[in-house]
Computed example of a mutant assay.
Amino acid sequence: MDISDYLQRRGGVARTSQLERAGFGRAAVNKAVAEGNIVRSSRGVYGIPSGVNPLLQAVKHGGLLTCLSAAPAYTLWTLKDAAALHICRSHPVQTSGLFEHGRPKHPKHAWLPVAGLADVLLHGLRCLPELESLVMVQSAVGRGDISLEFLYSRSTGRRNGKTRKILDMVIPRADSVLEVLANSHFARAGLRVRRHVLIPGVGEVDFLIEECLVVETDGSTHFEPRSVKKDQRRNNKSILGGYLVLRYYYEDVVYSPDDMVAEVLAVLELRRCGVFPRGEEWERTQMRNF
């Protein structure tokens, strides 16, 4: 394994001391720099020449990536990339172009210059907009990487009211970012929602709202021809079972949530007004048609 391979496996960055422990002496390091295989970012810091590397920047500034900047290291769900570099370090200093989160309080990442998962999530909860931090926490908690109870225990006091409010929105299971966001929007609208409901003949649906309206949130895989046909057949079976059906996609849930909720409310109102038959009325209609 050469120095480039070693750096690649460590996220593209390492200090001189780490290279020496891995068996790469000063001569080997200087040779790799001269040949252009690695670059010297700052004194004692080396990396792979691949554009702007946040990990390399964190080491250069003597800190650890955290908050949104650290999300890729833990494969956390996100809604957008970090516009600025979020770091935490033992001796915080206001630096232009950096978003400083103070001193790390939990064990760091095992080998990357990244704050520990607990710090990353807590920093995100206190820094990012509500839904952006929610999806990060949901992905970590849902995988079992960290417990919700632990995050609550680190979020006591009046100053952490916003943090606890977001933690209250975490659900036991979410299969996608879209489910997390849609659930929060439906809850805010005061709707009675059940998630991952098994409907005979249909299978599991994402949401059952007010016990009559099936709502599915579809990601990119649902655009495949086989998936489209499967979804349409599930729609048909849901309707034959007496349920109404609405489907929403990434653009709807992320960029137009108010329109999505308005449509759901409109369909429920139409049903309340008798436009769509329900319950025993639907069964009587079916018998007459038969």
Rank of each mutant, 00 (worst) to 15 (best):
L85N: 08
G274R: 05
Y243T: 02
S41P: 00
D252C: 11
A262I: 01
K108E: 11
Y6H: 15
V137I: 08
L134V: 03
A70W: 00
V93D: 07
L7D: 01
L117I: 14
V215Y: 00
T285Y: 11
L76P: 05
W77Y: 13
V135G: 05
H91M: 11
C127S: 14
L246M: 15
G11P: 02
G47H: 02
R126Q: 07
V261M: 08
S90Q: 13
S50L: 09
V267F: 07
S139Q: 03
R103Q: 14
D218P: 00
L181Q: 10
F99T: 11
L68M: 10
G190K: 07
I171Q: 15
Q94Y: 14
E283P: 00
S96V: 12
L121F: 02
G11K: 03
L270E: 12
V228S: 04
R284Q: 14
S147I: 01
E211Y: 06
S220V: 10
E100N: 15
F223G: 06
G242E: 09
S227M: 11
M136H: 01
L167D: 03
Y152S: 08
D81Y: 02
D81M: 05
L134W: 01
K60R: 14
P277M: 09
L125C: 06
L131V: 12
P72T: 09
V137D: 04
V254L: 13
Q286D: 01
V29K: 11
S147V: 02
T156W: 06
D175E: 15
Q57H: 07
Q286S: 06
Q286C: 09
E280H: 12
D252H: 15
E20I: 13
K31H: 15
E210G: 06
K162W: 08
H222Q: 05
L213N: 09
V170N: 07
R192N: 11
V245Q: 04
K237D: 12
K60H: 11
L178R: 08
C273S: 14
V264P: 01
V114W: 03
R233M: 09
T66Q: 05
V135T: 04
C127L: 03
Y255Q: 15
P200M: 08
H109K: 07
T163N: 07
G242L: 12
L68H: 02
A174E: 04
E179D: 10
V193W: 00
S139T: 01
T217K: 00
G51K: 09
A73W: 05
A189H: 04
R15G: 15
E251Y: 12
Q57L: 15
H91F: 10
H222R: 06
R195W: 00
D81C: 10
C273G: 07
N236W: 11
V177M: 04
R234Q: 09
V93Y: 11
L19M: 10
W282E: 15
G62F: 00
H86T: 03
T217Q: 05
V59I: 09
S69I: 06
A14T: 00
L128R: 02
A118C: 10
P49C: 09
L265T: 04
P104Q: 07
V228A: 08
D119G: 03
Y152I: 07
I87W: 00
N183Q: 13
L125R: 05
R126F: 02
A83M: 13
